[in-house]
Amino acid sequence: MSAPGGTGFLYPFLDAAERDAGPLLEDLARSAEAKAAESAALRANVLAASEDELSAVGLAMATRFDAGGRLLAMGNGGSSTDAASLVTLFGDPPAGRPLPARSLADDLAVLTALGNDVGFEVVFLRQVIAQVEPSDMVVGFSTSGGSKNLLLAFDEACERGCLTVGLAGYQGGQMAVSPSVQHCFVVPSQSIHRIQETQAALSWRLWEVVQAALRPLGPS
């Protein structure tokens, strides 16, 4: 049942008579390879360009962890899961020392209470006000760089003396220019997926630097 009137070539998606999945599967496999190659290239470029700042941020974070600081991560949607992954990596690492880390998107009671009673823009801000100390570190994931609730939380955290780190995509959005985001790693891509994949690699690298820079435990 091709589209009538010879328009089938224009609207192949109307063609329900397609039965051989072979060509589609070949296309999909090629597409997967191409996307993965794009992802790998982006990751390599961003890691190379960010190495110096990653080292600096990692050292600063290690110093804060040594002094009893805690890591607080935040993000919306898929980025909240990337924040949760970062928290797992720091808090329950595959190797090295577990460090105090938690996600501000974890507690559904707090999140829904603030979101419902006040507004979703303050769900992270109010937690920062209530819980954050000057020695803490606040890390936020936003592919657009423009999430209002992250920006408000960054402002407050910065004001309190925290170390603030942002991971953004596209051109970095507000996070790239906000003075409250002391370090902003921008993944220059138009694809949210490719951005998130590279943000994961940045998180891993940051964790590696921190672990290497930590002062040994116990009295010297």
Binding site: L24, A29, A37, S39
Partner: peptide
């Protein structure tokens, strides 16, 4: 190795 594909062999076919 910028630009490398990075998928394990056959992964593209499998995910398809």
């Amino acid at each position: 190795a910028a630009g490398a594909g990075g998928l394990p062999p056959g992964f593209g076919v499998d995910v398809a």
